[in-house]
């Protein structure tokens, strides 16, 4: 087997191209900075990536259905504020957690009601709720200092450890797992793809397109709310501008991971990988001493490079695998 065929086999694996770019990047950082692979740094990288990864995972539901949710940035900030506010005022951890999740749910319900119920453009609705959410956080934090809770059980949500693994990361992994199952293994998940591929055909094939569209925004909202809870527990303070721009990082993460903005394609693990990629990149840049002023320029270039490599690999595969596959097909037929 030629090196060409070998490499095309590897690249044909779902998400292989992005994973390769990711590993190359890690290798570079590891060589450039001895601290990069230290347990401390790995620990911190995971902990800090939790909110970005969760936002991307929730957003993936909306993207696969062919929609967009911009409101997740202010959603995570406001959810963090609500959960921290509840905990600071003596609410037990469970109630504080519910306050954050409920805030996320409200975002999802409002978005879903306008988009699926009234048929308003998702871009406009979520741009509006993004703005309103950010404004509410500003107003709220102007009158209330969200400087921290003394409730250690609340702080343990993100900061605790189980067998050396941070609880925040564990919770995120469990949520990712549940979301992936919901997307891949349930009838509802399947309808999300169908709606993203062709809403007209899905509708005439007895799929409830409106219900699906409504629910993807609810899920995106709830997951952002959970992200807010973990973020509040991790930071133990909420600044007025918390969450600003997170929606763009999440979208970028999804795109890097290979979730199609046009709908119909993607998965949770790909979105999570893409978001984690960006987290590692920003941490790596800090470690090797890049001037923070340059971060967004390098990040932007890296997003384009990663996506270009992924699409380039796909195109290359399409041109090389075609002559290969009939041979492979013949081989398997002979084997039978």
């Amino acid at each position: 087997m030629s090196i060409f065929q070998r490499s095309s086999r590897v690249l044909a694996i779902d998400g292989a191209a992005v994973s390769i770019v990711f590993l190359i990047m890690c290798a570079y950082f590891a060589i450039a900075s001895p601290y990069f692979l230290s347990p401390d740094n790995i620990h911190n990288t995971f902990v800090e990536s939790v909110s970005a990864v969760l936002l991307a995972a929730g957003l993936t539901f909306v993207l696969i259905s062919g929609g967009i949710d911009l409101s997740i940035g202010s959603n995570i900030g406001l959810s963090a504020a609500m959960t921290l506010f509840a905990s600071m005022n003596g609410a037990p951890t469970v109630l504080a957690l519910l306050a954050g999740v409920a805030t996320g749910l409200i975002f999802g319900l409002v978005n879903g009601a306008f988009i699926a119920g009234l048929g308003v453009s998702d871009f406009i609705v979520t741009l509006a709720t993004l703005s309103v959410g950010a404004g509410v956080l500003q107003v709220f934090s102007a009158s209330t200092q969200l400087t921290g809770t003394a409730d250690s059980s609340f702080l343990a949500l993100a900061r605790g450890e189980v067998a050396g693994i941070p609880t925040g990361v564990l919770i995120a992994v469990v949520i990712l797992f549940v979301l992936e199952i919901a997307l891949i293994k349930t009838p509802f998940g399947r309808t999300i793809y169908a709606v993203g591929i062709n809403p007209n055909a899905a509708y005439l094939a007895a799929v409830s397109v409106r219900r699906t569209k409504f629910l993807v925004f609810v899920i995106s909202g709830i997951v952002a709310g959970i992200g807010g809870v973990l973020l509040a527990s991790h930071l133990n303070s909420v600044q007025p501008g918390l969450g600003g721009g997170y929606e763009l990082t999440a979208i970028a993460g999804c795109v890097v991971g290979g979730v199609a903005l046009a709908g119909g394609r993607g998965s949770i693990w790909r979105a999570a990988l893409g978001a984690f990629f960006l987290s590692v990149l920003s941490r790596g840049l800090q470690l090797i001493g890049v001037d923070p002023l340059w971060f967004s320029i390098v990040t932007g270039a890296a997003i384009v490079a990663a996506v270009a490599f992924d699409r380039g690999a796909q195109k290359w595969l399409q041109s090389t695998l075609r002559p290969v596959s009939p041979v492979a097909a013949a081989a398997t037929q002979n084997a039978q």
Partner: peptide, 12 residues
Amino acid sequence: THAILGDFSIKR
């Protein structure tokens, strides 16, 4: 435009 889900397999 109104019947097939082009990206889906026959099965799906």
